[in-house]
Design a protein around this nucleic acid. Structure first.
Lengths: 216, 216, 216, 216
DNA sequence: TATGAATGAGCTTTCATTCAT
DNA sequence: AATGAATGAAAGCTCATTCAT
């Protein structure tokens, strides 16, 4: 099973139900959407790359946009998965005494995920500005549920006196900026440069902790 | 003269040479490209919005992509203008004894610019992933010239002992992440929310200075 | 099966592989190209005449020029077919003791062919001046291979003392001029006049033989 | 005065009345029409080549087709000029005792004319099939007046016993085929080959005389 | 289920022509 | 007389989608 396949298997929990052809369609679509954008990718191109007839795409996905959604929706779900597990707060209390540990864990975990799903991530952030439907989903799930959860976390560590007194939303913003700034620079803007990932992530965390922690 | 016009006047210094119709075309294109993306915007739509015949667009811009470039290239130039002025380093030495002052000045200045040119900024960041030509220009001008300049600045303040010892590129990365993170959150992700801009910028700078300065 | 269909069947030996629609497109294109010329014929016009959607044309022929080539190339091949059969010289030796017999046979045969394919012939001679690609094909196939073959024939009959001593190329030229002059006058310049074809062809051959033969 | 200019001067008797710009337009049109055909040549292309504004063309020629006609009509007139002079028969009686002399004179004269006006000739024969208006003019002037005149000439020499008894139209046809066959081969099909023009014309006449004369 | 020919609306672009300057 | 910006119809071509097989 190829890396590509694994990504798709992982993306669709019910991947068993996907035809072989369907998997090929999805794989081809991901590749093209990431590279040229949704609007600039033609269904005939996807069909050719997937080695199926054009009609086959529309048998499985009523419209081209449906195909996009079939890719993007589970990607967003997976992306936020760690934050929506039940008993998230318990996990938090038990596992991470310090904010730094929490941040480290979450960064490591999410970077690993994104690294393995970079094309999917590309599609999500590239298409969100253009697809109102997508933007809606994003706002509903991320901006509301996730931010709410993150707020609790921040307040949790603020109560513990581990991070500075600042509106939680501001802290979330600068934290996410820093993390996504790293991912975008590392994997999208300058992927061909030599990166010492471990060191660079450490530095990023160091900056973040410096910026957010009280004592120094 | 409308706000729109002013933006365009400012964008093309030689705006005098633009026909009235040409300005309308550019304004319409900016609006549509920002909203729906380059690929999903049709020239007929631009023509209609601009109140000109479709042929008129192609009299001035040989292709649809030419029109995009005519918009994006000067935008990128304006965006980086403050960093390419002659005697930049002198200005630096004389005007800003502290890194914080420098950062404050530059943030204030660039945020003001972007706020007035948000649609242009949108187009630039939205289309860079899809237009290899654009990516090339971006890399050549921004990634190389500007980064080089910023490196010198960072080293300058590091030598002065005002910011932590870390590879300049890393410092640049986290700094830009923080700044653009603010702009994107403020103007693209949640523009309709109430923002106390001054306070929020202050906090952002505070975070940045905490993260980068030596003493605390 | 109509006359039109038969012509097309004959033109494309593998006509079985042509869709019904494809045949209609080709027939419509032949009619319009012959009448108004390639450049002055629009694809929408062809589509309408063929009773298909315009898109259908482009499904089968990537470009309008491809459609022209699909018509012209096999026409040129058919036109020169009698001269490229294997053992052409043997045929010559056995069947035609006299140049006059040979000329008669070839004229009769080719005139018959052209009469049945006049629109195709029109397209070929009308478009050759404008399509460099076509001119290339024409030169390569006709001007080189065929002329070479004709040269041998002329020399053969010259050796037999049946036609005058003159450079073979000159003899070929005046012969072809005479034959095509007849066809063009008969079928293109004055098709509506009353022609006694048999007599006129006889006279043409008589002139040709007078002009080329030694004895009188 | 360039060769180009001379051709145009000669083409329009009232060339004095042509603006400098007009001459340039005509020259540019001739070049492009000959090369790519009327339908495939755009007026903007002509304007550019002529170094004038597009509007200027339409100031002088109401439509693109008018421009074509302004070129083609006088060309056809010039081409047939020698046959329409008054007292043509007198000239004939006095100057040419033998058909061969007449043929020689006329061939020499017309070939010289065509050689100097090859682009014009190209345009005429290339556009006649496509422009009904042109075809009409051609038929009216050439096919009727000229053929009538040629008929008289042929009958004149037939009466003198110098050419074979054959319907004059047939004799005209084979004669013109032979002459134009030479011109087309020489100047249009294989202009880049080495031609010994004098010898080749001699041979052509020899063939023609052989074909048409009684005695041998 | 899968195909791929067929569709027709819509795309970018070109063009002959007009007209205010 | 000459310009060239402007036009809008029409060009060649692409596309997402349908449907008979």
């Amino acid at each position: 099973m190829s890396q590509q396949d694994k990504m798709i298997e992982e993306l669709f929990h019910n991947a068993d139900e996907l035809t072989e052809k369907q998997k090929k369609i999805v794989a081809a679509a991901i590749e093209s959407f990431a590279e040229k954008g949704f609007a600039a990718t033609s269904t005939s191109e996807i069909a050719k790359k997937a080695g199926v007839a054009e009609g086959t795409i529309f048998r499985h996905y009523k419209t081209k946009k449906d195909l996009l959604m079939a890719i993007v929706a589970p990607t967003m779900a997976k992306l936020i998965a760690p934050f929506v597990i039940k008993d998230f707060n318990k996990v938090l209390n038990h596992d991470f005494d310090h904010f730094e540990d929490f941040i480290k864990a979450i960064i490591e975990n999410r970077i690993k995920f994104l690294k393995n799903n970079m094309s999917l991530f590309r599609i999500v952030i590239q298409e969100i500005p253009f697809q109102p439907e997508l933007r809606e989903q994003f706002k509903e799930h991320i901006a509301q549920k996730i931010i709410e959860r993150l707020r609790q976390i921040v307040e949790h560590y603020q109560a513990k006196g581990q991070i500075i007194e600042m509106p939680p939303d501001t802290i979330i913003r600068v934290t996410l900026s820093t993390i996504f700034g790293y991912i975008i620079a590392r994997y999208l803007l300058a992927p061909e440069e030599e990166w010492d990932d471990n060191t660079e992530i450490e530095r990023t965390i160091q900056f973040l902790m410096n910026g957010l922690s009280l004592e120094k």
